[in-house]
Design a protein around this nucleic acid. Sequence first.
DNA 1: GGCATTTCTTGACATATGTCAAATGCGTTT
DNA 2: AAACGCATTTGACATATGTCAAGAAATGCC
Lengths: 332, 332
Amino acid sequence: MASRNPAPDDTAAGLHGALPIDAAYNLPLRAAFAYYVDNLSQAEIAEKLQVSRASVHNYLRQAQQEGIVRISLDPGIAARQELADRIADRFDLQAVYIVPSLAGEVRPSVFRAAAMWLGDLLEGVDSLGVAWGETVHEVASLLPQRSRRDLHIVQLIGSMTLPFRFTAESCTALIADRFGADCFNFHAPAVLSDPALVSALCAEPILADHLVRMAKCDAALFAIGLSTVDSHIVQCGVATEQELAIYQEDGAAAVIAGRFIDANGVPISGPLNGRVIGIDLDRLRAISKRIVVSAGPERVEALRAALVGGFATHLVTDERTAACLVGEGTAA
Amino acid sequence: MASRNPAPDDTAAGLHGALPIDAAYNLPLRAAFAYYVDNLSQAEIAEKLQVSRASVHNYLRQAQQEGIVRISLDPGIAARQELADRIADRFDLQAVYIVPSLAGEVRPSVFRAAAMWLGDLLEGVDSLGVAWGETVHEVASLLPQRSRRDLHIVQLIGSMTLPFRFTAESCTALIADRFGADCFNFHAPAVLSDPALVSALCAEPILADHLVRMAKCDAALFAIGLSTVDSHIVQCGVATEQELAIYQEDGAAAVIAGRFIDANGVPISGPLNGRVIGIDLDRLRAISKRIVVSAGPERVEALRAALVGGFATHLVTDERTAACLVGEGTAA
DNA sequence: GGCATTTCTTGACATATGTCAAATGCGTTT
DNA sequence: AAACGCATTTGACATATGTCAAGAAATGCC
């Protein structure tokens, strides 16, 4: 029983080069194979591995956390729902993934599903732009470990240091971490008080480089913000209540990447004009794969505005929200 | 509780268009989401779905069989094993997947793992050539359901109607079925007694077309046959014992797609020259992704011959076989 | 419409899995 | 060398899951 359990990041090379191959190293991996491939019971594995059954259970849990074990539901099946088709047709989306939630709270359910599928959605993608907000953060924190070393994670909106746990950096960092990907953060606040300062700042090489990186993204992950008073855009200090009120008067229906749009998906100008540092809506729309995660009855209108505006190509939502989107079912 | 459980191949369109979205249709899907995404217990799901706990269990099983639920181990982790690297280096392979088998029987274990990974290995592949034999059949029969409608499955060797359960057609048919792919069979026997007849037959449009299809494959799945008397090549009637003996005298080390090679991976000519209908070794080697599944101590020499000959680019095997391949560990 | 056949469902039991606090080992510090 | 802290392991218990044969519903057939 020599050398048990090398650290996970251990390359394993050299260390056990000369060990007999039945030596008990890499326990979580072996347990996972025995359990999921050979269909042995945990008790049987425990016996073969000469450890307690509880340990085997621990290994399996560890294997799952490390992403050795991948349990997921076929995204295709969620996209092949009849409702999904209708929404995709109606709003000209490439794919709609519908979560048939039974649980009382739909949003966490949708977040988990989105996290489960993000890896699949990102196949063939080189560079993922990431917005920030509660939704994006939740999805990020639920992402399973999955190796995508080649991927670039790019922050799409400037940061706010705020009363919230979901900072822009934690969104990008979490995602980058789970994919083992490189992370490119946007070293600027999301909003300044003077447009001139914004221009000046964006002309700085560091930020200019970042703007180029954003333009090169071939996928984006974001959510649709509400334009109501309890919206995070106010709570985070991006907009004041007064500013928000002005936008509301002009028909604000949703917030995307810190920008307001109306019910027809058309950008609204207002007091934040030129003061936001982050990807603008046209450039966002130029990214080829635009993944939106949004669910909940209170978000139907905002989501519809975003879809009408053509901001999404891929949508993850739940059954009930989906039904409301196409005018069936009630918000309740 | 109208219209429960439409048949699996039901398009679902129209049928429940007007149903309230909380109607209890598509139970396996709902159960799977509740269980794997929402982390509800089967008992909780039973309650929400108004069915017995046992039913929920049945739905989940069904969901798994239908490929809604996908449980797999990261192929990357099996390829990142230190032994895998060494073998890939030594034999110039693109990837080696090593199964750390605990179970007594390694071969079934490797077959299950190969089946689990085949879908991943076939990403980006348009046309998969398939040989036949016990190994290929086993892998095929263990394949999980996974949609790859666009894929072509192409039979690489003529058929034998034989005392075995693993016919060429069942290999291709099974694989095509699991992927929902199109299946192109080779309508000819694997071996004839007269080379002239082989030429004549292959000139027939039907077969000529198939030869073209084989050449267009961008991946192949095959195993390495033994050149010993108990080899399936004799049992299937492809070669007689006398013919086999001749090849053995000339140093036959393995059989690939009905062709003999020696320990250096060089093709051996012999009594079967010109009499086999199936992909020839050069054309096989011209397929860009060549996936070999092979494991078991008795197969080490044959496998090594195949690898030396450059017939594989991807290998799925077990730890012990792998160790023997690079000269460590014992066959026992 | 009735009967046979299949498919789905269920309750009760057997088994496997999850949990947690206590114990053990192991490397580090004093 | 003893003492400490951390991570891992373990046994015992609570819970969740798997199984199966019997019953119910749906389906197909004449």
